[in-house]
Design a protein around this nucleic acid. Structure first.
Lengths: 256, 256
DNA sequence: ACATTGACTTTGTCGGACAAAGGGACAAGC
DNA sequence: GCTTGTCCCTTTGTCCGACAAAGTCAATGT
């Protein structure tokens, strides 16, 4: 039942709402429409494209979802820069559904976090270091609260990524981080010395950033990540387990 | 006109189409609905949720866009695993709009590609090496065709990432790769020895994979990426330029 | 000057409608 | 036996018109 010869390309007919979405997307990607610009009311778009409002609204859902368009507080439509967080959480969801293993997660987080530590040491400014210190102070006070500590750990690494001033790296590490660091809760719950080692590592990392010492930052991040792995295994878990759907919660509803 | 006291949380009213989308999303994320399962017709969903078809259709656009649901060849709705490629290209678009610089791109691609080379050396199997060899044969024959060579280079690195058998890494490197490697065209156009050095580096990488030599793979990848940077600068470009929108083409319409 | 009112606009949702495309069953033709 | 044409039914893509809720804005009254 297979086509005898694959001579022709699949002919693809684009539906109206797709065409509308594409048109607006091109307008934004080309720079003719800039983030913050008003896209116009639904009625106006209907008139311009000569389609029904239902069609326009479907196109808007597509654009809204890809982050190119946003509803303002006044409910009007504005062109917008896609937010990182939305993208990251969707990738994390995809990783869960693909049932990637903790080993894959760990190996990837390892290189990304070490790189982040190095680049952060080179580029961190006082403002971001202050935020890291604030995080650290809270973490030191929360060593007996696994859930809170885990949340602070996730935040610490996000701040560290921001300190790199490398938005590509910041975005690249986020999906893995979103799945990886929440497991900290499980580890500090099962491994007594886990919390102490965590805040100690964070301490050394902050100090390395302050000193602008990339090598030291990389070293302590390396230990920090190695600790995670040891803790994970001592908690009786297997690296080759797939990441559970349980983490979908923390991904679907980002921690406020 | 600020609220006197912030006693209450912002009450957020979710629109019907959002609720419908969320409900279906939860069904899929929880595993109750598995990829490939039919989601049902629009009419059926209307009946189940007790909303209008327009509302259901808007919800479907949202889910379709996030890749959780797909239209089959028969136009029916099926639950689906989000494809990597769709996600990657959207991130690349976001990076373009945020006007990230080539420096950020380079620094990130560097660590990700080196990690990919190492892990590929440890995990590559014969099948994927055969694909890399095929790519290499084409590249050697296309040294005078910058556009084609650039496309093959992008593909080479994608294959290398697949060889790692680490899907998290594979996905993490893709967005940067999608923007990074197309510049190869510009470089081999301006730098005479560029093409030769590129195929030579790929050759050494394949050999390292065959030998399972992670250190050697990392070394040659490191040189390969350093070459890119040298070529980029010799082509008269500045690393601190933002990535141009020009590349939107190659991102929006993935190379088939 | 400022709060209130009321008209106007825009969005979110609904109901119903129809053409086009695909699927399935069944008969006709080679 | 296999393909082809035909009819019917389902489903999707699109359109039209409608209305309540919420926001905007300008005129109003004090």
């Amino acid at each position: 039942m297979v086509a005898a010869l694959e001579r022709f390309d699949k002919i693809e007919v684009a539906s109206a709402y797709q065409l509308v979405a594409d048109a607006i997307e091109r307008e934004i990607m080309s720079g003719r429409m800039r983030p913050g610009d008003s896209v116009g009311t639904e009625a106006a778009l209907c008139a311009q494209f000569g389609v029904n409002r239902s069609t326009v609204r479907e196109a808007i859902r597509v654009l809204e979802q890809s982050g190119l368009v946003r509803r303002g507080a006044d409910r009007r439509l504005y062109a917008s820069l896609p937010r990182y967080s939305g993208l990251s959480s969707r990738i994390s969801r995809a990783l869960i559904l693909h049932e990637v293993t903790f080993r894959e997660l760990w190996a990837t987080a390892r290189v990304l976090e070490i790189a982040a530590a190095e680049q952060a040491a080179e580029n961190a400014d006082a403002a971001i270091i202050a935020l890291l210190e604030a995080n650290q102070a809270q973490a030191e006070a929360a060593q007996d609260d696994p859930a809170r500590l885990s949340h602070l750990d996730t935040e610490f690494h996000q701040l560290l990524a921001k300190a790199t001033r490398n938005r590509v790296l910041e975005l690249a590490r986020e999906p893995a981080g979103l799945l990886f660091f929440p497991t900290t809760e499980l580890i500090v719950r099962r491994v007594p010395e886990g919390a102490g080692r965590l805040v100690a590592a964070h301490r050394h990392l902050i100090d390395a950033l302050k000193a602008g010492d990339a090598a030291q930052a990389a070293l302590w991040m390396s230990r920090h990540i190695a600790d995670w792995r040891k803790g994970f295994e001592r908690a009786g878990r297997d690296l080759d387990e797939p990441v559970e759907r349980v983490y979908a919660r923390s991904v679907l509803r980002p921690p406020y």
